[in-house]
Write a protein that binds this DNA or RNA. Structure first.
Lengths: 184, 184
DNA sequence: TTAAACTTTCAGAAATTACTGAAACTTCAG
DNA sequence: CTGAAGTTTCAGTAATTTCTGAAAGTTTAA
């Protein structure tokens, strides 16, 4: 497993970005390597290509499996475990969004809901609760919406994205057509 | 500046989440404190309320100003600097999205564009470039689309979000109405 | 100009996070 | 059962990030 400079630069970049995307350097490198490799590869190949310890690769693959970005494969007649990126780029991106939503929004939503059940004890708490309610509603809105969007599936989403700023016009259109119900 | 347990739990939670949202613990706590405080407060108040060093507060506020989440204020006749969260929750969320797009997507887009200009040197690179192109297109799509969405402004975006899964129907509607142009 | 009241900076300490590699574990063939 | 070929775990170490606090900087009043 020899990497050309082009591929190496891509992998190293993904490593650097990894931490910004919610996983660590080596995990980023591993997933990059798996995405660009045509064939499934073994953990040893990975350790070798990235010059990192075998143990580290094992931990990284474990995490990537938790993210459902990598899957295990067995070749017939071999005992070795082979790994490959699972699904298309599109599906992988979806998984990353979903996982990040779980990590970045859900815990906060839970906490906010709990806090908002309590009666404010004084003026400061009362003012704070108004703000917390706003944060809660915004987060909940984003969270629900992103779930809906994922349900649309690639084709429709792609249409929606290509629509770009045209979205505004379509919304106007919808308002005019459905001018019967009194929706604010 | 005495914090009630309710407010403290919120602030501490934001501290923990901070690192997942792209800044560190104290920066998260500071922004939480500013959001829930009715009046602008001084850096000393912050250090005091959060039991962290004055220097740390200074660095945190500097970073928050870079994110444009916090603004400086002067009270007439006083020399002290007061700070407050700038804008509504909505605006702050917008800033966070924007900043994160810059940090998490733009560098990768730049790198991918560069790599894709090079001719693949062998089969492996050729296969890899196909994948990289897919990643590039997806990132670019998301990036452009999120820019468009921000341009829509809060009111329209809110409509769009409330539409939820109804988006699919509106898209169908649009397709039927504009059935003249041959858009795939 | 001096000093008081305030702010920022940054070297080093503390805390956190990531990585290594040896030992332990698993699975299978003979 | 034994050992070979593979995998995982985890204690300790290395690297990175964050935080402190003292020193240096700034601004204003007198």
């Amino acid at each position: 497993m020899q990497l050309t400079p082009m591929l190496e630069s891509f992998i190293m970049h993904f490593g650097e970005m990894g931490s910004r995307w919610g996983f660590n350097r080596t995990v980023g490198q591993i997933v990059a390597l798996l995405v660009i490799s045509e064939e499934p590869i073994t953990a040893n190949d990975i350790a070798d290509a990235l010059r990192i310890s075998r143990g580290n690769v094992s931990m990284g693959l474990k995490e990537l499996q938790a993210w459902r970005l990598v899957q295990l494969q067995h070749k017939p007649g071999e005992r070795k475990e082979y790994f490959q990126a699972c699904g298309s780029i599109w599906e992988m991106a979806n998984r990353v969004f979903e996982e990040r939503r779980k990590r970045e929004m859900d815990p906060t939503l839970t906490l906010l809901r709990d806090i908002l059940l309590d009666k404010p004890a004084n003026g400061a708490e009362q003012h704070a609760q108004v703000k917390l309610q706003e944060i809660h509603d915004l987060l909940e809105g984003i969270s629900k919406w992103s779930t809906e969007l994922q349900r649309l599936g690639p084709d429709k989403l792609s249409t929606l994205m290509k629509l770009g700023s045209g979205v505004g016009k379509v919304l106007d259109l919808k308002d005019k057509l459905l001018a019967k119900p009194s929706n604010s």
